[in-house]
Design a protein around this nucleic acid. Sequence first.
RNA 1: GGUCCGGUAGCUCAGCUGGAUAGAGCAGCUGCCUUCUAAGCAGCAGGUCAUGUGUUCGAAUCACAUCCGGAUCACCA
Length: 592
Amino acid sequence: MTIEAILKDDIQLAIRTHFEINVDDILLQPTKKEFEGFYTFVTFPLTKTIRKAPAEIGQIIGQFLVETSSVTASFNVVQGFLNISLKDSTWLDLFTGIYDDSAFGTFPSNGQSVMIEFSSPNTNKPLHLGHLRNNFLGDSLSKIMKASGYEVEKTCLVNDRGIHICKSMLAYKELGNGETPETSGIKGDHLAGKYYVLFDVEYKKQIKELVALGMPEEEAAKKAPWILEAQKLLLLWEQGDAETVALWEKMNSWVYAGFAETYQKIGVGFDKTYYESNTYLLGKDIIEEGLKNEVFFKKADNSVWIDLTTEGLDEKLVLRGDGTSVYITQDLGTTELKNSDFHNDRYLWVVGNEQDYHFKVLFAILKRLGRTYSEGCYHISYGMVDLPSGKMKSREGTVVDADDLVNEMIQTAADRTQELGKLDDFASDEAKTLYNQLAMGALKYFLLKVDPKKRMLFNPLESIDFQGHTGPFIQYTYARIRSIMRKAEQAGISKVIPAQGYELHLAERELIFALSQYPGRVMAAANEFAPSLISQYAFDLAKVYNQFYAEVSIFSDPNPEAVRLRVALSGAVSETIKKALGLLGIEVPERM
RNA sequence: GGUCCGGUAGCUCAGCUGGAUAGAGCAGCUGCCUUCUAAGCAGCAGGUCAUGUGUUCGAAUCACAUCCGGAUCACCA
């Protein structure tokens, strides 16, 4: 039973005893810093039924708690706020529970399984900053869901076919001169991206030429030679034309090699990868089924639709008049495939909020089709990463490239560390590892500290910070504690929690309180699909520790009990920081 | 135009199941390394919580309206 639950019961009993009424839901909030106490009960809502002043109610409940509650030491009342302080024996018990629990913050299996699809890159361009947000969110959420008791399947759906892929293929055919990653020294995904951009340059030029000859722009966009060529390529690909497929395979293999390098660097991976080239024909049998069940209907031109106006959506096309699939057709098929592959209880998609409507439609259709698994489907919608100049656009070259950014971060980490003269005795490979950890810590924290639902701003001119509310600040706190733990080991100081009777320093109580909040945050982050809650927590915990560190001396305290407790507390904090950052996919250095 | 999301300090963000004088970080200014790592700590300064009305003992938080920004409403994905 948690302290909070005990307090709630005690308060309930107090109200029942003194006022003869039952209050089902006792709400406690953390006491504000400027007041004494750790938990606060607000008495205003009781004034109506009890007909006493809020402060008086607080006094009566507080008095009752001090006399009867097993955890309450003292209280104070400010207006309608009853602030409660806990007994030191309670703090020590609480800490003992945390300290002895090696699985602190990870919950036992809830018997449920969840699939998280994220990343889902296109094979015509390298990853950019927006993809990084997606990848870090997906990776972190999969870890958070796992810690909260789910069995987790990480999947990725690679968008490896379609007209946009044919565009880069065409540009390569026309302008490539047999260039390869080896001959050019360009990473495979960047090489493909180069030709995607070149296509667009030439295509725009052709449109302009047609417009100059008097053709309306809309028509020109449809009739420019290269777009017609690209469409031809797509048809050839779908027919399995050997030469086209060979080119497609060659270019894709370059891209996959490039992606693999990037994924490896950012520490992200998947349990199962689906390829759209294998799934794009799926879903047509579902259309048949829906037609039979009259969930869908056919229009005169043979196209198939669903009317979702009763759900507040629109009429939606699910199959073209020529019998070919659209996006939603494929997604219906792929979702069905995932379900038959894994039979998960829940299916999550980490996809940008520009597709909110698409997922509403997808889930509504699944429900109409009577798919029971639709209940477990959820779109984790996240906001775009904007630049000061606005939205990033691949084709216009206004993107922050993922590889470039990661490399810059590593360089910044190295510069910063050397400026501070931190690692005179570091071996070069240890230094290299540290730079990577710091770079990825700064980058991941930067992207994960913001509420996923919100769009966020990245200013390339201001490099991502290493001080303040950042990953490296938390990593630094960890390294600092590790240094203390090494010193304690050398000095032969054991980590022992004192017996009852020890009087805690306020900074020690605050640390225990902060530690005790961790499991609740893990649960909340899982329920709300918000790694930002963990980010915030890790920062708060590190901050409380640094205050503790500045306020009390660990080794030179005359009381050996205090020294042992503080070493134990430090150890628990470092473990919790490591776990929390671990949920964000961030590693911790032993020294920095 | 319909629908959805957002608007909190100079900047980037917390807080939003209603509760105390609205919190961090960065940037600016002051202090603190002969003591366990100063990538740290303490402090100062900085706010009509977009605007208006309503509900309430109490509103940044809820409701309605307005303004501003973004997304989406494709036989694109």
